[in-house]
Structures are given as structure tokens and as C-alpha cells.
Design a protein around this nucleic acid. Structure first.
Lengths: 195, 195, 195, 195
DNA sequence: AATGAATGAGGCTTCATTCAT
DNA sequence: GATGAATGAAGCCTCATTCAT
């Protein structure tokens, strides 16, 4: 009737790892099962379908991410501090759910058309609102440059953070906080030397 | 006996468009054929396999890109100017081969293990050498900041440029050169307002 | 060690209901278990297999039916009265084991090839003998028409009775005896008005 | 693009034969393919799914049947003659599409819930209307008995005809017309000898 | 150059059944 | 008596590819 949640979580983590490594489409259910040490059919004791695994992985990730973001946005920080906090939380999430982030990065665009994954579009919108709002506040408060196309800046920031998942490995040399610091330094101050 | 190169090129462009839109794995040969107005089997008059289409698309893209890069690197530009030129050429290439770039972005990582796509690894190495070299020259010449992890900076730059393919549409509001200018401005000077 | 016969009977009734509603093949063991309020695997404490449930349902039905028929045939009734009694007993059985009859109707033909269900063929033969004999006696005694193909008449009678299971619902408007009376009236006298 | 209609028809006939022999659920796509002399996957060049084969078989049958019935009902026949014509056409259809009729008999009830097979319900309704109407006309015109439950008579007639598919073999001893004549004789006049 | 038809491998999923607890 | 978890066989379907015409 109700399989143990712990085992589900384990299997979901395995699936996420494989999806991230090979891409969702290229991943066979059999491969996931092999990796998890059971037979392909047995996965269906825990999940309805391959797609529902993907669904849970992505919605789980977004739920957690938004808990982080909402905590930041609920505080009364200035625009620069907000931006710094959002970036830092993003890297922390990437540190904890690397696979999910990688899957999100690779698949979310194609998935958005399917009704089942409508929540991706929702999240996308909230995302844009939060970041654009912060940037606008920053321009108004004269802490961010006013001469940049703000939507371009938004995309630049958003992508620059998340694309890092392509090379980031949890437990590596740099902590997520350190990477966030360096990224923020580049993004905010630029890489050119100032005189 | 030998199919016309023009028709091949046409079909390849169609294939690239579909691969970019749906992902390589999720694209069926039939879908490409539909889009091109012939039957799936007929594509095999022009190409050995689905994979060989992908191969040609990616290698064609890299060949052209390296023609651009080599032209820049062959000139005697300073580090900052080199970086500016490389970024600009990248956006120009993206403008001309959007589909190929999108495919490269999405698939190249998974493809690198296959012997057939070894050229991706080669390119990757040359890429790294060119960019890292430029950055190092810049640090030495005191035009780039010395306090940044240079590999991190490299990845940041590389990704930040190419990931733009996810939203860039040729023929849109901004020319590739303009986008390059704004990106360079952000990357070099930062988005924070200076006093 | 040995499961209670009452519980078995209960479960068998549930299984019969589901088999009748959905067809044997389309019925999953899980569905039966759901309906009975336990898990699929638990059914195997009571029964060897899904097939053995079917077996018991059908042989139980035929055993009871033949008890009825034999009671009729053992009596010294005339052909017309015998026929009336057989039809009436058939409707009574249908009233008491609707599900089993429906399953028999739908599945017995396909099952007859399997050795396990050889008893279906046996029953079929006895059936034919009883009905055909009665009809022949009736023709000889000049109570049934002599101008009809007797095998055709047999099939007509047999099917006309049992196919009623497709719409008959126990506890409905008409008692089995009443339905038997009407059917017999139609079959014996015809539906055309006589002058 | 568009496979030859002749081949489709052939394959459909094969499928119908197998469905009729083993039941829809118990029939594997592989079995149909074996019987037709190709591989299971090849069937999908002609049909979308196993279910769509069933759909075509049943709707093809009903379309043809209704052509027959409508021709009869369009003529200005008396109730008895109408009934005779309908029964005769039914046996003719059974003669020409035995397999389809057998499938209809066995599966239509379970199928009626699925939206895809809503046409079965439609047909059922038209069916009932045509037969009930004829019976009522006959009672009014005093050619059919008035003392029978008319719905019971309808079911009796309907089932008695169609259930014959369980033993009828085209090309056998009796022509469909002859069987119709005998059935009508039994149904109209009864099997009891009159004095 | 292209079609129509078929192949065969492999993918996702279902399900009767088993068994330790 | 019953559960939870797993097995393994089999089913439907997809799809890259082939090939005679």
C-alpha cells in the first residue's frame, strides 16, 4: 500500500543522479534500477512512472529552493544584500541538490509545455519577479548601474549562477559560500582592474 | 550517386532546428523528415545515421567558430581587446548558428565520452587554453584583477556567454554586437554602481 | 495452517464479482484484493493462483447446477414438463450465482482447451445429452414440432436461457420463476398472435 | 505516410479472427503479427495501437450493419415483415463478419464505459428503438402477442439472434437465410406442436 | 531521389507470484 | 493471517535503420 518514504527518497536520489549524468530521455528505467540494485519493474512499486520520478525530483527541488528564497525576501534587506543572499542561497541549494539542479537546467525548458510540469512555469515567473524587482530597487537606490538593459542583466545573473552546476561538485575545493562570494565579486565589481 | 551538397545542407539545417528544439534523443528521424517534407527512410540517402547528422552539425559549428577565434588570436591584440573580440565573435556565431550552439550546449558533455565525438574534447582544450591564456596575460598586464581564482573566472566567462543561447533569437531587438557590448560591460566593470 | 472455509468462500464471491464485471483476463489479483480489503499477496494464503480461483468458481457453479438438473431428470416428468423444469432451474441458478454464470458464459469456450478445465467439456456433453434427449422425447411424443432442426433448437434454447445473464439482476422486478415462465411461453408458443 | 488500404483490411481481418478466437485481452499483438506473417512492431505501421484495431473492427461492423437495418426500416413493411427482415439481415451480417460479431458480443459491454467506444452506446440505443418500435407496432396491429413483457421480448429476440455467433460458421451446412427462417419460425410460432 | 514496407532491438510498464517478517 | 518488498516474465509500443522498387 504505502512503501517506506525513506526507500523512496533513496531511489529518487539515485534516479536524480542518473538523470543528471545522462539526461532524462537517455536514461532507461533499467539503468536506474541497476544503479539502485533492484529490477526495473520493482521501481513501479514506489513510483507510478519514470515521469513521476522526474516530477518529484523537480518539484522537491523547487519547493526547497523557494523556502530559501522566501526566507531571504521576507527579510528587510537592501537590494544589494538581497541579491547577495539570493545568489548565496542558490549556490547552497546547488550544493545540496546538485543532480536536481542539473536536471532542471537541462530539461525544464522542454518540459514547460506539458500540463504536468506547469509548476515550472509558475516558478519561473516568481523567479523573474523576485530578481527583476531586486534589480529595479537597486537601480532606484543607486546601488546598481542604470545604464544596463535590466532584463538582459536579469538573464545574465540568473544563467551565470545556475549554469555553474555544469562544473560544480559538492565537497570540492570551494564551499558554496566561497563560490558565491567570488561570483558576486565578479558580477558586482567586474573582472577588470580598477585604478 | 552522390547527393547534392545544397540539399544536404538544407536537411542538416532542418535537423539542427529540431534537435535544438526538442533535444537530440527526443528527436525522431521521422520528425526531421516530416519537417523537411520527405519520408524518414529517405534521409538515409543523404546521411549514414541520425548520429552522423549530429556529428556534422557540431563539427561544422566548431570549424566555423575556430576560424573566427583563430582570426582574433592571430592578431596582435592586448588581453582586454582579445577578450572583447572573442566574446563578440562568440555572439556572432550564436547569431548565425543558433541551433548548433544550442545543441552543443545541451549535448556536448554527454557526447564527449564517445570516440566519434573526440573532437569536442579537443576543441574544449583549445578553448580553455585560449581563454585562460588571455586571462593570464591580462592579469600579468594588470588589466584584469589578480585576486580572482582564474579557473573560476574562465568558467564564469565561458558559460555566461554560451548560456545566452537559451534565450537569444537571431533577428531580435539587439544585434549580436550590442549584446556582446552589454555583456562585456557587465563582466568587465560589474553591475554595481561606482562612485 | 489451513485457512477458514468461510473466509475462502467470501473471497471467492468477491473474485467472482470482479471477474464477472471486468472479465477474467482484465481482472488483476490486486483488484480482487482491493475489493476484499487486503493486499494482493495475501490472497495466496487462501488460493494457489488466480486460475485456481476461477477453477473453483466454475466447478462450484457446475456442481450445484447439476444437482438441480439431476433432481429434475431423476423425476419421471414428460418432455415438456422436463424442459420447463430445466429452464426454471437454470434461471434459479442464475439468480443465486449470477457472477459465476456470467463468467461461465464469457470464458468457458476459451478455457475448454486447457486440461485443467476439462470438466467444462464434460459438463457440456452431459448438458447436450440431457437437452437433446428431452427434445427428442418431445418430438416422439408429439408435443414438440418435428419440422425443426433439432440441434438448432437445442442451441437456440440453451443460449436463449443463459445469455439472459447479461441483463439479469438478482433482486430485480421479476423473480427467476417469472422470467422462466415468460421465456417458456415465448419459446413454446411463439410471440406471434394466434387466431 | 499512407499504407495501402488493402493491406490494412487484410491485417484487420486477421486481427478480428484472433480477437474472436481468444478474446481481446488475451490476444497479444505478437500473436496477430505471427498470424499475419510479420513482426509485431510492423503492425504499428498500419495502426496506432491494438485498441485502434478493435475500434476499427467494431465500428466497421456497426456501420455495415446499420446500412442493412436502415435499408429495411426505410421500406414500408408491416411489423412482422420488418422483424423478419431485421433478423435475416442480422444473420447475413453474421455470415459476412462473423469475427466482428463475436468480438462485439464478448467485449462491447466492458467497452461502453470508454469514451472512445461511445459509438457502441449510440448503436445500442438505436438498436433498442428499432426493435422495440417494431414490436410495439406489431402488438398494436395485433400480429404479436400483447400478454408479454415487451422489454423482455426485445432482449430475448436480440440475444437469441446474436448469441448464435458462438456456434455459427460461415460456409457451413445452413445458409444464413435458412438459419434466419428457422429462428423466426421458432420465435414466432414456438417450438411446441399445435393442434 | 524518394517511397513504402518491414525489421529488430529495446524501452516503459503491468502483473501474477514469492517470501521473509 | 497478513504485509511489504521484490521478482521475472511478458505485453504494448517506438524508432533507427534497411531495401526493393
Amino acid at each position: 500500500m504505502s512503501p517506506s518514504p525513506e526507500r523512496r527518497e533513496e531511489l529518487l536520489a539515485t534516479a536524480a543522479e542518473v538523470f543528471a549524468a545522462q539526461g532524462y530521455n537517455a536514461t532507461t528505467v533499467r539503468k536506474i534500477a541497476d544503479e539502485a540494485g533492484l529490477l526495473a519493474g520493482s521501481l513501479y512499486y514506489y513510483f507510478d512512472s519514470k515521469e513521476s520520478m522526474l516530477d518529484e525530483i523537480l518539484s522537491g527541488f523547487l519547493t526547497e529552493l523557494w523556502a530559501r528564497y522566501d526566507a531571504v525576501l521576507g527579510t528587510d534587506l537592501g537590494p544589494r544584500e538581497t541579491l547577495e543572499a539570493l545568489v548565496t542561497e542558490s549556490f547552497r541549494e546547488m550544493d545540496q541538490r546538485r543532480a536536481a539542479v542539473a536536471i532542471y537546467q537541462r530539461e525544464s525548458k522542454h518540459l514547460q509545455n506539458q500540463p504536468r510540469f506547469a509548476f515550472l512555469v509558475e516558478s519561473q515567473k516568481k523567479f523573474e519577479k523576485a530578481w527583476l524587482g531586486t534589480l529595479e530597487r537597486g537601480v532606484a537606490a543607486e546601488v546598481f548601474r542604470a545604464d544596463l538593459d535590466i532584463r538582459l542583466t536579469y538573464r545574465f545573473l540568473r544563467d551565470t549562477v545556475w549554469v555553474a552546476v555544469s562544473w560544480y561538485r559538492p565537497g570540492g575545493q570551494h564551499s558554496p559560500e566561497e563560490i558565491a562570494r567570488q561570483y558576486l565579486s565578479m558580477v558586482l565589481e567586474g573582472i577588470a582592474l580598477r585604478e
